[in-house]
Design a binder for these strands. Structure first.
Lengths: 161, 161
DNA sequence: ATATGTCATGTTATAAAGTAACGAGACCGG
DNA sequence: CCGGTCTCGTTACTTTATAACATGACATAT
């Protein structure tokens, strides 16, 4: 896990921005929450809550589920991470400045989750909701398949950690 | 649970069609599978695997999870039910004749899940996948909110059974 | 400076959802 | 009748998530 200085700097900047964003909302990105976010960002792919627990546990001994779930819930509320239902995981939001539903392309081979900015479903979804007289609260859109890198590969080096 | 004759007839017809569909594929809608499908159809909303277990258990004594999960997996494969990730539940497919990804509008108050035929996300999704060079395997689209009936109501008679 | 409140975290226990692995009976084709 | 395949039963377990209660740290009001 040797990281380039550049990357760690970029990471710090990102975490600082997140902290600022929370502060602007009267919330606080505590050390624990910050570390959890850092772990998820570093992973670059959806991580299970228990993956996070394991990583944290290496640093600070036994960590019970609620500790991590609470931080993850906070980060979800702040829009800093998204929950990925397809894999029961959590992934860092790539543009946390404004809250939004995630539209994710998830590779089933390497686990990478790419978040797409442009709204893939939009007018037609609104239209349909209007026809049904349905008040939309949130939208889950997850596309499962194979990313560019993994299209070629034949078989399952499923995820690396 | 008094059902009109019409409804039970319609239900039987639907189950017969499902059986026919399986048979055409060289598969068999066994009594257990048929009953599980019936339970899910009758519910008219997403049901947890353990809800199904409880219902079955009333009829035949202890039912272990694998029994039901296997049937549900079979029904999923045949496209007769959809999995609803948002609620860890299973809902009957409203048009099982041709397999398709479910596009669901799920009411958070009454639990009803309406399946929409017209593809809400489609071209734009394909386009985006093409740009990412991503090979789509399956798509999960779940819209959460309030259905027409529940828009008026103020608070949480959350689901009825 | 002390009481009171609020918020974040720790801790214990348990609930809810899902699966692995093995065995027994039914049924089919040779 | 034998060997395979399919379905289901059964036991045990894993993974994911939450309820409920205790503790500590910090703010502020008197």
């Amino acid at each position: 896990m040797t990281q380039s200085l550049e990357r760690t700097r970029a990471l710090d900047r990102r975490l600082d921005q997140a902290a600022e964003l929370c502060r602007a909302r009267g919330q606080s990105l505590t050390p624990l929450r910050r570390r959890v976010l850092e772990i998820v960002v570093e992973a670059g792919r959806p991580l299970g809550a228990y993956d996070v627990i394991d990583i944290l546990a290496q640093e600070r001994g036994r960590v019970a589920p609620p500790t991590v779930y609470r931080s993850l819930d906070f980060l979800l509320e702040q829009g800093l991470v998204h929950k990925v239902l397809s894999v029961n995981g959590f992934v860092a939001c790539s543009q946390a400045t404004r809250p939004h539903a995630a539209e994710l392309f998830i590779c089933q081979r390497c686990g990478t989750a790419v978040e797409v900015a442009r709204r893939v479903a939009d007018e037609r979804l609104e239209e349909t909701a209007a026809e049904l007289d349905f008040a939309i609260d949130s939208v889950v859109l997850e596309v499962r398949g194979r990313c560019a890198d993994c299209r070629i590969e034949t078989s399952p080096p499923h995820v690396t950690a």
